[in-house]
Design a protein around this nucleic acid. Structure first.
Length: 276
DNA sequence: CATCAGGCGAGAC
DNA sequence: GTCTCGCCTGAT
């Protein structure tokens, strides 16, 4: 057990922010007891959200070596929120509302597949699709306590899948995209290892060579899979907010390097705030 | 029944 | 280069 007491860190908000589709609230836990399960990096982790602290069910060593980095706990998010223009009432409200969100450092390949699936789709169904893919094509593993979980499938495993089988995973027309993208990556036509070293624009262009990856998906992959926090994915929610709240244009210049973090606050606020 | 969910690709111009 | 359209599928 590792107990973390840190500002701007809410597992519940991260879970609902829709950046990680394999962080789930465990059934049967309510307001009094909020427990979450996360499958990532070939591991399974249980996390409990308490009033002012987050409890990781792992050793101090695993926390220091793996999860601290994964949850971006070295970044000071109060500094980012503090950058918000005092006169920008909307952004002040949005960033305060989702102040416990962090930009996770997730796995690149998983992000590519997950955000291809996300297009014209809703979070619930996206999670279901990913569950099915993991069960069918991911490696089956067990925790020390005997809990069964599945790794995210490798590119080669998905490239081998028949198109009909992908349709059976509820992917719909995205089946073709997943199939072709898995082939491109497993053949090395797009080298994922190189992306880390590339500039943001170059990495984005490289990702867009993959079928089913357009501007929006590429930006999500850059933000969540490469931790390029300058990426600012514009989807239907963000588009609506930009039209309604920023008819003169969003002040991107002011927030250079942190656009993606603000995008998450705006997205989450628009998605979650009561009575729209 | 129509519309929408964190869009994209193909084709027309 | 920009614009339009069709697309799997489940929820409302």
């Amino acid at each position: 057990m590792v107990v973390i007491t840190k500002d701007h860190f809410s597992i519940g908000q991260i879970c609902q922010s829709g950046q990680c589709f394999r962080l789930r609230k465990l059934e049967g836990t309510g307001k009094a007891e909020e427990k979450y399960g996360l499958t990532a990096l070939g591991r399974y982790l249980e996390i409990e959200q308490k009033e002012k602290e987050v409890v990781f069910d792992c050793t101090r060593e695993e926390y220091e070596q793996v999860w601290k980095h994964y949850f971006d706990l070295d970044e000071d998010y109060s500094r980012i929120i503090g950058m918000v223009d005092e006169r920008d009432a909307y952004l002040l409200q949005a960033s305060a509302y989702g102040s416990g969100i962090r930009i996770l450092r997730q796995e690149l390949w998983e992000m590519i597949v997950s955000f291809i699936i996300s297009q014209q789709n809703n979070i619930k169904r996206i999670q279901k699709c990913i569950d099915l893919l993991c069960r069918k094509y991911g490696e089956e593993k067990y925790t020390e306590k005997g809990f069964c979980y599945y790794d995210f499938p490798k590119p080669q495993a998905l490239a081998k899948a028949a198109l009909e089988e992908l349709y059976a995973c509820n992917l719909g027309y995205r089946s073709r995209y997943i199939h072709d993208t898995a082939e491109s990556v497993s053949r090395g036509e797009v080298d994922l290892a190189c992306l880390q070293e590339m500039s943001y624009e170059a990495a984005k262009a490289e990702l867009m060579k993959l079928r089913g990856v357009g501007v929006k998906v590429a930006e999500c992959v850059c933000l969540f899979g490469l931790h390029r926090t300058e990426a600012f994915p514009v989807d239907t929610h963000i588009n609506k907010v930009l039209r309604q709240q920023y008819p003169q244009g969003f002040p991107f210049e002011r927030y250079k390097g942190y656009e993606g973090t603000l995008q998450q606050y705006i997205f989450y606020y628009d998605l979650m705030k009561p009575e729209k």
